[in-house]
């Protein structure tokens, strides 16, 4: 069964005199455990599509089903809860909470989910060890490199045990070494936890790792390629 299914999804912006279709009738199915990259030039609509897949934005027309839930049927409060319990995020600019330590940043999402403290601490230890940052649990984000911060972001995304992780240009701010390490890490996590990863990216190195590449242009999916990696 598909974890995500979109049916005739459109997103139209009316900010100028002429309405602009950022996403122009996308039909898509993503299965559990996929490692998928959405690629395309700037302004092609990949971020808009990603926002809709993550419940941060709703389609103007069409439906998005996450398993059996139609996101369009959820109120803004329900969407927040839905994101909390189903979706993990890795952002381009890491977006860790600067006043919290690495440990607390990872724990925070579970705090929101009301996971018991003992369970939170167990998961934090396991995840930070898995992303190779277990020795920096009490560091603040500002004391870490970009690559290390993004590892914490991956641990945070996994901490909530989401159905899938949305990663918007996760390597854009990283050097080549950090990029390869991060991609390797995400591929491992994908295999270890069978967590679905969906990337929006320009980065060829990400595309080289992806097992499925969706090429989008003018809000439409032009190509849908599968790779055996």
């Amino acid at each position: 069964m598909s974890i995500i299914e979109t049916k005739g999804v459109y997103k139209t912006y009316n900010t100028t005199k002429v309405p602009v279709n950022a996403v122009n009738g996308v039909d898509l199915k993503i299965e559990e455990g996929e490692f998928t990259a959405i690629v395309g030039p700037s302004g092609s609509g990949k971020t808009t599509l990603l926002n809709m897949l993550s419940g941060l934005d709703l389609p103007t027309r069409g439906d998005i089903f996450i398993e059996n839930t139609n996101l369009k049927g959820l109120s803004s409060s329900q969407l927040i809860d839905f994101r909390l319990n189903n979706i993990g995020f890795v952002f381009q600019a890491y977006n860790l909470i600067p006043v919290l330590t690495v440990k607390e940043n990872t724990e925070f999402i579970m705090f929101l989910q009301k996971v018991p403290k003992r369970e939170r601490q167990k998961r934090v230890k396991e995840l930070l060890g898995a992303v190779g940052i277990g020795d920096k649990m009490d560091y603040k984000p500002s004391q870490l490199s970009g690559g290390q911060q993004q590892r914490v972001a991956v641990a945070r995304a996994l901490a909530s045990r989401p159905k899938y992780i949305i990663a918007d240009e996760p390597t854009a701010n990283l050097d080549s070494v950090s990029t390869s390490e991060l991609l390797e890490l995400m591929a491992q996590m994908n295999k270890k936890y069978n967590t679905t990863f969906i990337f929006a990216t320009h980065d060829q190195r990400v595309m080289d790792k992806a097992r499925r590449i969706l090429t989008i242009e003018d809000g439409k999916i032009l190509k849908d390629e599968q790779f055996d990696r």
């Binding site: 409060s77 927040i80 994101r83 319990n85 600067p98 999402i109 929101l112």
Partner: peptide, 16 residues
Amino acid sequence: TREIGMLIALGMNKRK
């Protein structure tokens, strides 16, 4: 702004 946007994106509800 970005940090609070991130908190809402992650799932921090209005009450919190």
